[in-house]
């Protein structure tokens, strides 16, 4: 239990405050606007939510990688366990945060409007969504992005690598309207891509598992963490 509480401590920092500001800003965006002309959830709930993932990944690692990493290497805890704990904490926070945004949106507009992907067809249909749908549609992309960020952190040993990698991926996808990442596009719901939605979500989930596996392997090699103090 103590270890879980320790992970949450990282949120009480200046960076955590910045992330909280973004979260509140997004909430205000979701819970405002004209109920007559509700904004689509693909912008409010997907596109603008995803940047929270790299922010969270960077913050969760900022204490461990804040000073010398030798200390981290000598901690008598399982590094793999730490990574998975952080992943779990991030996921719980993301799900909770997204639910709060959706609640705000629901409170304002009385229903959830976005794009709906049926099991039978891969063509999205605009309209009203069931309560569980926005989260289910978003989660594979969020987990994939989280896995990319965590791998970037463990491979480069810099907390800010999560920001660079995660935001770059998100921005590349948004700027190219999904064309650059092809079947791995994060915001399939946002853009008119020709990718099959279910294939896309399966690829993202599978990719996330592979990347997390790689990150687990990297973080477990303790010898890598014993090195000179670079200050970051």
């Amino acid at each position: 239990m103590e270890r879980w509480r320790y992970e949450l401590h990282a949120l009480r920092s200046v960076s955590g405050l910045a992330a909280a500001c973004y979260f509140l800003l997004g909430l205000a965006g979701a819970a405002s606007g004209d109920p007559e002309l509700p904004r689509s959830l693909v912008t409010v709930g997907e596109l603008s939510f995803l940047p929270l993932v790299p922010l969270l990944a960077a913050i969760l690692f900022s204490r461990e990688l804040g000073g010398g990493t030798e200390l981290l290497a000598s901690l008598p805890i399982s590094l793999e366990g730490m990574l998975w704990r952080k992943t779990a904490v991030a996921l719980v926070l993301l799900i909770a945060g997204h639910s709060v945004w959706m609640a705000g949106y629901y409170w304002r507009n009385g229903a959830l409007f976005g794009r709906h992907f049926g099991l039978a067809s891969d063509r999205p249909v605009g309209g009203e969504l069931a309560v569980y749908e926005p989260l289910l549609q978003l989660l594979p992309a969020a987990v994939f992005l989280l896995a990319v960020c965590l791998l970037a952190v463990t491979a480069s040993q810099k907390a800010y690598a999560a920001l660079a990698a995660g935001l770059a991926l998100w921005m590349a996808d948004a700027l190219s309207h999904g064309a650059l990442l092809g079947p791995f596009t994060l915001t399939n719901g946002t853009h008119e891509t020709n990718e099959d939605f279910w294939l896309n979500r399966c690829l993202l989930t599978g990719g996330a598992v592979l990347l997390l596996g790689a990150a687990t392997y990297w973080i477990g090699r303790r010898a890598r963490w014993v090195r000179e103090d670079t200050g970051d």
């Binding site: 960076s15 922010l55 960077a58 913050i59 920001l163 935001l167």
Partner: peptide, 16 residues
């Protein structure tokens, strides 16, 4: 250290 976060957010904000 928050400057990293601010800088990368500035990158996203100042462009996209």
């Amino acid at each position: 250290r928050v400057v990293y976060l601010i800088a990368f957010c500035g990158w996203v904000f100042g462009t996209f």
